[in-house]
Design a binder for these strands. Sequence first.
DNA 1: GTCTATATAAAGATAGAC
DNA 2: GTCTATCTTTATATAGAC
Lengths: 188, 188
Amino acid sequence: MEQDTKSLIIDIATSLFQLKGYMGVGLTEIIKTCNISKGSFYHHFPNGKEELLIACLQSISDAITGDIKDFFERYPTAEEATKKMIEKLVDNFEREGTIAAYTFTSIVSEMGALSESVRNTCSALYIRMQEIYSAKLEADGFSKEAAASTALMMTATIEGGIILCLTQKVSDPLKIMSHELPKLLKKI
Amino acid sequence: MEQDTKSLIIDIATSLFQLKGYMGVGLTEIIKTCNISKGSFYHHFPNGKEELLIACLQSISDAITGDIKDFFERYPTAEEATKKMIEKLVDNFEREGTIAAYTFTSIVSEMGALSESVRNTCSALYIRMQEIYSAKLEADGFSKEAAASTALMMTATIEGGIILCLTQKVSDPLKIMSHELPKLLKKI
DNA sequence: GTCTATATAAAGATAGAC
DNA sequence: GTCTATCTTTATATAGAC
């Protein structure tokens, strides 16, 4: 089955941004990898590279929240779901040397100060993630407020853990998170 | 007292990188803000922009670890020191809209995949921070292993909290960290 | 140690034929 | 919807006078 040009561009660009960051990848490299011309590219993205970036961020965002939802539906408690989810991140990192969620962290760090729409897109993803965590924690018996605070802690800790793994090129940080985080997820 | 050109460049560049990221700031902008010429710049940094970046990272690294050490010497327990430290981050963010430690996160996200020496410099800072936390936790009575794990959690959580604050342009995430983190720092 | 002037490459974007 | 050719601006970096 043939993929249409627009989604081809999004897929290729997403993985290139993941590898080298937004500014680290030129349009020329993107269209070369896609085997298309500049004319074709600007037909699909009249507002250029930043429009493409937003499309990529939305595509990754859907993939990530889809993944998270799967885990939080499959396992009975937030604690178990979180453990399994982090195990998958570790697995991914050890096999491919990268983590999809990291692209977000990376790009909001790089572009958040320069582009409001990029910052908003990234902000929306963090909120979507927290909402999934929070709902499960409430189902586990947490109060609304406690669930929200804890969901925020989870998001921050996992994001931070991913950064440490990528920076130090080892998977230990996330592994340690996976047995430290549950301490916060037990209802007291 | 006159500042020598080299440290002037480092100071100016540091704050520009902080505002717009490494790739977001051109050499031309740096030298213009410094009121110097390209010739002068390359005299001090023969290997160009990346050499300057490393110098900036080292300078921020010293400032950050100095700050952290102050807190962890002044307050009797890791729990108190951490609380005060995060309060200062919040304060800084609310007054200036930025956080020094964020520059690191931002730059390692942007450049870590492209430059080994940048990645190594950032990795070294994270380790220095963890060592300070870890030493204090051991003094509080934690075992060597528990102290190391907890120090890692602190680092990740604070980094993640900073990212969330910057991405969402609100200080709530760090505020919540400051009363959630202590749960991890109490000896059981 | 600082300057001006220049080199060279690459970036993002556009025009207009097909 | 895709192409080639071109435009404009910007990037980092260098040469050589003072």
